[in-house]
Write a protein that binds this DNA or RNA. Structure first.
Lengths: 214, 214
DNA sequence: TTTAATTTGATAAAAATATATCGATATTTT
DNA sequence: AAAATATCGATATATTTTTATCAAATTAAA
């Protein structure tokens, strides 16, 4: 269907387009132009058109723009928001609990079906319909339930180990919130949230701004 | 001192270098080569040398590499980890509490000094030495205490409004965890954590992997 | 002391990403 | 019905970021 493959940058913008388009729909807009999208989202309009062309074959009409509903359909389809995939989470501390009880994931087609932890006080409880199991049972669970996505919210000391256990059990995609760099084989998808990175970028920008003002 | 300015990509890698170098130091290594760093961190060695050259004037010695201590000193200095800056957080729900009680920020030179919320049950409490105030008092607090960094962990419906209140009060850098795009003037630093983006990239990679294997 | 090995740092090339230009086209206005 | 206008989509250009190449330099080994 589409020739060119979406770049990482394009993919990371798609959820933003989707949010924007859903808001348009809510406001009753039937059509939207790439120029308008670009203005509102602080992007370049050529970029918007290219991004949309890559994941959708819907053609925009001069003077009118694109049909909102069709774009929503195509982005959701492309991102797989329609068919949910299951995930497990390891480390049911503060952050783990927060993610477990976050309902927004549903929208993104993600369903956290179980948590794992070593703390006996937490094991056996249930958060948002997900049972918390002892860490030992991870391998069995993953194999039995064919889960491909693993989320890591543990202290850094154990994160690498957990990643390896996950991979051995059959996990193919790891989303890590542990403050350390994980090493995984090439055929494993890995996305690491790094607060230190984000903060570095932010505070560097801040110091530029403060310097400019004085 | 340094001619070329660090790119956003370079800056975001610096905390990772630092973590790695601190580990080297812990292991008693005095020197480290860019080749070794690159191997261990799964980067390109040229990139490592360039990154380091931009933020440090320390010269690497052929056959030995760079002096670990000096690199640590320069990265920490560049990132401002020595002089901590204060921040406030708005939205003391699950995520807000998690961030408030996260001790790791200290290392990054960030100190969350107060929280703000509208929920009367939370207002008046204290988390990790930070008092929680009614949202109304934000402007006063920011002005009196000369705080420049604001963290947003509220539902999306109110996030844009809060950003604007922050900016009006004097906040210059906003770190947002709200699942929506914020619009701010150019002279405000903004870093938005977007879980939907991350997840999109991850699950797209996953589907590539799964497709390749079948 | 000479040789071999390894790393740096400068420069060049490549890849990825973002932006600019412009003719063609559909809609609205005149 | 014709003209004006806004938008698309194709192509070209620019910028940013990453990776490759290689001579010069330094250390350790022979």
């Amino acid at each position: 269907m589409e020739n060119e493959k979406a770049s990482r940058a394009t993919i990371s913008r798609l959820p933003r387009y989707l949010r924007y388009l859903l808001e348009c729909k809510r406001q009753g807009k039937l059509n939207i132009s790439s120029t308008t999208i670009a203005n509102d989202m602080q992007l370049n309009s050529v970029q918007v058109r290219k991004d949309l062309a890559i994941i959708s074959s819907v053609a925009g009409k001069p003077k009118l723009g694109f049909e909102v509903d069709l774009l929503i359909r195509d982005i959701e389809g492309y991102l797989g928001y329609n068919n949910t995939s299951e995930a497990i989470i390891v480390g049911v501390g503060k952050l783990g609990k927060t993610l477990l009880s976050y309902d927004g994931f549903k929208k993104y087609g993600l369903h956290i079906v179980a948590g794992f932890d070593v703390n006996p006080e937490i094991v056996g409880t249930e958060i948002n319909n997900a049972k918390i199991f002892p860490f030992d049972e991870l391998t069995d669970f993953v194999k039995k339930n064919n889960v491909y996505i693993g989320i890591i919210t543990t202290p850094k000391a154990v994160a690498q180990n957990i990643a390896e256990t996950m991979i051995a059990a059959g996990i193919k995609a790891i989303w890590s919130f542990a403050p350390c760099h994980l090493k995984v084989p090439e055929n494993i998808a890995l996305k690491q949230e790094d607060m230190a990175s984000s903060l570095a970028v932010l505070s560097k920008r801040l110091s530029e701004i403060l310097n400019n003002e004085n």
